[in-house]
Structures are given as C-alpha cells and as structure tokens.
Write a protein that binds this DNA or RNA. Sequence first.
RNA 1: GCCGAUGUGGCUCAGUGGUAGAGCACUCGAUUCGUAAUCGAGCGGUCGCGGGUUCAAAUCCCGCCAUCGGCUCCA
Length: 617
Amino acid sequence: MKFMPAKESVPSQASPSEEPSEKSHLPKTSESESLKKIRHTTSHIMAMAVQKLFPKAQVTIGPWIENGFYYDFDNPEPFTEKDLKAIRKEMIKIINRKLPVIREEVSREEAERRIKAINEPYKLEILADIQGDPITIYHLGDQWWDLCAGPHVENTADIHPDAFDLESVAGAYWRGDENKAQLQRIYGTAWESPEQLAEYKRRKEEALRRDHRKLGKELGLFIFADPVGPGLPLWTPKGTVVRSLLEDFLKQEQLKRGYLPVVTPHIARVDLFKISGHWQKYKEDMFPMMAEDEESEQHEQGFVLKPMNCPFHIQIYKSELRSYRDLPMRLAEFGTVYRFEQSGELGGLTRVRGFTVDDSHLFVTPEQLDQEFLNVVDLILSVFKSLQLKNFRARLSFRDPDSDKYIGSDDAWDKAQSAIRRAVETLGLPHFEGIGEAAFYGPKLDFIFQDVLDREWQLGTVQVDYNLPERFELEYVAEDGTRKRPVMIHRAPFGSLERLIGILIEEYAGDFPLWLAPIQARLLPVAEEFLPYAKQVVEQMQALGLRAEVDTSGDRLGKLIRNAEKDKIPVMAVVGAKEVESNALSIRTRASGELGAIPVSEVLERLKHANENYGQF
RNA sequence: GCCGAUGUGGCUCAGUGGUAGAGCACUCGAUUCGUAAUCGAGCGGUCGCGGGUUCAAAUCCCGCCAUCGGCUCCA
C-alpha cells in the first residue's frame, strides 16, 4: 500500500497577493457562550427592527448558526438586499436605546393568551411544540418580546453596532417543508468586536479565492458551455489529466484487492429500472424517458439514461450461475450516470447532472458481509490518506421509518443497518447518525466533506443492500448445493470524480501535489537562444513519463516566473548560459522557492521519484 | 422547483436613455533580457436570448436562459 509521506503543511502561497496572514482563532457559535448570547440577541433585535419597518411581517424562528444567525419572517413582499440597509439602521437605533433584555417565565396558558393578542400564528405553532413548563419569554425593553429559550445578553447595548452585519436574504420554507408557506429569511452575523467581524469577512474573501469554480477556470481544468447545458461539465486537456490520474490510482488499488473491471452502457430499457425500483422511487431524479413513438410513450416503453450503475452490474452477475466459490465478486466501473437535479441545486462540480461514479458492486455471502464491508472501509480510508484528505466526518445514513420513499422489508433494513453499525464499532470509527439519509434501497456509511463555503458534501459511500438481490432474484449455489441469496455492497470511495475534484481543488487551493499536477515542470529560458537546450531537457522528462513543457513566449524571466506561479506549476526550471554550460537547471518550486542549480540528471531522478511515490520534489 | 441578486470582447471589470471603454490575454514589431508584469502598435463585442416602450435602449418594461447566495432535494 502506498501512502503520501506526511506533509508538514500545505504548500505556502508564494504570491505576495495571496500570503495567508497568521490567523487568529475565530470561535464558532457552538464553542462560545458569549457568541450564543450575542447572536441570539442580535436576531431578536433584527426581528424587532423588521417588524417596525414592515408591520405586516410575522415572526417565526430566529436561531444562531455557526457563523451568525438568521430569522425567518412571513412578509407579504419578499425582502430585497436593499431592505437590509434600512433594517440594519433600525437595529442600530435599537442598540443605542440601550433596551434591557428581560427574561420572564409564564404559564403555557398565559403565553398562548399573549401570542393570540399580538396575532402571531407561527409562534402559536412553536408554542405547541415546546415541552414542559414554564414558558420563557424575552423582552427587549417594553416594546417587543419573543418566545425564546435564550440565553441572551443583558442589554441591547451589549451588541456592538460595528460588530454585526446583515448578509443576505433567501426564501425558506416553514418547517423546512416545500409544501408549506415560503418565508423570507435574513442571514446575519454578529461578533464580540469589530476586529472579529473584520477577520470573519477577510476569511470569507480568502475562502472565495480557493473556490473550485474560480480556480477551475483560472487553471483551465473544466468548463461549462451554455449550448451543452447546465450541470454538464466539459473536461479540458488539463482537467482530464487530473481525472485520469485519479482513475488510474484507484484502478491500481482495486486491482490489488481483487476487483474485476466491467463496462456498461449509459442507457437501458425503462423496464430495468422498474425491476430495481428506481422508476417507482427515483423517477423524479431521472431524465425523461426516450420513446420511439407515441404508442411506446403511452405504454411506458422506452429507454432512460442511467441514474445509477447497480442494475447493470447485477445483470452481469446474473448472466451466469454463480458458485459460493465465486464470491465475493467485486465488479467495478467508472460509470457515468445522469440525474435530473433541480435547476436551483446545480453548482460547480459539487452538484452536477452528469457525473462519473467510481462504482463497484460486491456480491457476497451473508457470512462474508462483515469482513468485506471492513475491507471496503479500509480501501476508502487509504484512498483519502493518499489524497491527503483529513477533514471528513463519517455518517451512518439510515432510513426514516416514517417515510415511504424506501423499498424492502423491515427485516432487510434492520439487518443492513446493524451490519453497518457493527463495522464502525469494530473499527472504532467516529461517526454520527443521519436518519432519513439512506438510499432508497439500503442504508449507507457516508464520508462527508466541507467545501470552501462550509457546505457539506458526501464523497465516499458504502451501502449494504438486501433489497436489490431480492428484487432481481439473485442467487448463488452454496456448499450444500442449495440456492442462496447473496448480499450486495455498493461502494464508491470517491463518490463522484467531479465532486472529488471540486473538493480536491479547494483542499489544495489549486496546488496539486506533483503526481496530480497537470503540468509538473515548466522550463523557463532566460533568452530565446536557450530554447533548444530547454526543449531537449523537456524531451528527456517526457521520456520518463513526466508532464513537462517549455515556455516559448519569449518574455523576460520575471514574466515567465509570474505566469508559472499563476498556473501553479510545482517545479520551474530556469535555463540560461550557466545552466547550459554545466548541464544543470536552476530549480524553483512553488512550495519552497529557489533551490539553486541542480544537475539535469539529478533533477530527472528526483522528479521521477516524487512522481512515482506521491511525493514532493 | 421556490426566494433574492447578477449577466458588457477569451479573462477581470467601468459605462444607467444619445454613434460601445480599460487592463490582462492574443497577433505583429522593437528589445535578448537571471527568479512574480520590457516598450509600442494592432486584432477583438449582434452589451445572455426574445419581445415591448421611445425619435433613440447595454441602460426603462415583460418573458425566457444561465450563473451566484439560500430553501427544498442529493454523489
């Protein structure tokens, strides 16, 4: 097994405009009692201000979130960003009035009476959900109050008028249910001091600079084209290098672990997905069926783009009578799938409509399930380690027993969920549970990562499935000659190549490790007369399987360096009279700056070694 | 899909009713240069698309498309 040598730190940003200043710790709300109070109270002040400016606005909920707070209102007119300015002004007035924040305990009946008196129907619903007595109310002076558990600061003047800001408006559904009323949400942030607020804003801007959509464009890795369609990325030559390297890397790992490669088509008869249950439970997420004529359309006969690969791999399993000796059978494919995601969901590479899953389906006996599941988790963790991905959380994605979006028996679900639970316990893997996060056919162990905007995305996944083997009537011949039903494990360490690369770009801030860099080395001639020498060195590099090129632009060295740095090329090699004479290269790396003159043979050796061992130059 | 914002040359952006601009990139010329931008000239835009208002629309109005921030939904 190969691992990256542990790197001390992320390669530093050499560009003066990108130097990361020493970061002071900015606490999250959950880590700070003081911030909880500040943000809670600021959201109340905002609600009071909104109701003053928009008397028809009704209040709902206004909790703190990790970097700030929000408050949802039911207002006849949606708020616009222009309204935020006025609301902010009004909030400062409230702060300056130094209103005491007073906690009051009242009985349920009293709370109900008062809410009815001010005609706030949403609050009444909230009250009905609060368990136990007494009910607490927080007043801002004697003008405004809200049903709230607290805690709060003691006086509105405890909120620093220059340490909060209103950030954005958004629609949000009441109770998170798209069938209920759409409310108007205002997001804000509040801190202990103006300095903290400034640091928070600075950090947000910094995060934007490593946004994979921005870097993907700058580094020329992928594009979207209007005539092609939304959510359908096109991979440029450079991006394709990264993709292929990741594929090759995983294919090698899988080869070592007994996986068998397969290839399956992108479309299939809709009938296939009726057997699997996709058509019944997943139709909304699929591109519409292609029918040859109206009659076929009416009889629901036609072809669909595949949203998943499992039914295809199942057909390969089914194509022969399998023996227990054949199991576990691990069929693997980089399978491109298409899902008709809602238009508002699409974004960059993290949410697209066509993506490639590093998919595999393992057909195992019930006895083999636990061990095979552990093997898969081991593969996934080793892949993350090689890619230097550390910031993830493991989620047990179980079904919501009250929902009807799942197929299969309670027994099958219980068996599958307990298998996953056993595995994480055996491994001592820290995890949390996500009820209602299961796939429609089975529970999952998911690996969740964060993007630059703190949004969470699922990458790797392992799923235990007793249902599809049942629906497709899968069998194997057991030792005693009887027919038995295998269990399936669905798994994808990357999840999707697209999403993985999006996360990797942000994780690396565009600085791919040498083995993944689209261009690993660029030769920089100080004058045109050194071009032939540079070209000859590049040929030697290419002969060793290295990705190298010469800058032939004829610009001055300073410009060549600048461009190579902007392209985030890990190794730059300066070539001039001195180098030609001594058969050397003056090396400058993005990670470590100038390294001085090094003989060509040594440079070649070191590049090759780093490339093959996932290391640095 | 829903709420809000945005859409001007390849890229980043200025222009808010009166004949489309800048920097970078690109091409050409001069310079032959040693660790983050050499100088000059040139090329390049149906101002997202369609409709409307107006003597006149990048600019105002309507519809659509796409992107961005959320919600809902998910690798």
